[in-house]
Amino acid sequence: MTMIGGTGPRPAPVRPSDDDWTAFVEGAARGDQNSLSRLYDASSRLVYGIALRILGDPADAEEVTLDVFSQVWRSAKDYSRDKGTVSSWLIMMARSRALDRARSRGRRQGRETAIDASVDAVESAAGPEEATFLRLSAVRVRGAISALAPEQRELIELSFFSGLTHTELAERMGQPLGTVKTRIRAGMTKLREAIGVSKEVQ
């Protein structure tokens, strides 16, 4: 096994799929730091980007990113594919930690401002390691989201990146509670269909 140190060379670029990410997590579960390093190289832009969008502060986003990958290292052995993909695990963990951090610092107002402002945030150039997976996944999902009605898209994105409840969203948007629920449900149904997850079965 190659031990990866803090100042050692970065591993060769890889082109991971979610299956590769699963293998990295399995490696981390065996105590292999090289696997964690490769997962970090493949997915840190995603984790950091989510944290930055929620928190609007690079220093806070760094701490959340560190926290997420430290948690992956500690709990990789508990990961199970039947509860979601590795990318879903990382995304939900990044979201949860970032929202926790925002709440703990009483930044709800600031965070919402950051969310609004970050829509135009400059995205880093893609590295070769994500050309075939992360980038394509992002393009596909962004296409699906942009195809939603504007009022649906706004509510769904605000919900994900702010952690507001139905009631809080209704107050913030000045819309009736029932309207908010209906729009989010309709948007989520369209999103499922667009990204290929099974259609809602009544």
Binding site: L46, Y48, I50, S70, T85, S88, A138, R142, F160
Partner: peptide
């Protein structure tokens, strides 16, 4: 898996290079 996909609308942003060193 569906809800997590919404996170992919966030910009993909490189964290500072030193963060990787701190993690390891």
């Amino acid at each position: 898996d569906v809800v997590a996909k919404i996170g992919l609308t966030a910009p993909l942003v490189d964290p500072p290079a030193l963060l990787r060193t701190r993690l390891l």
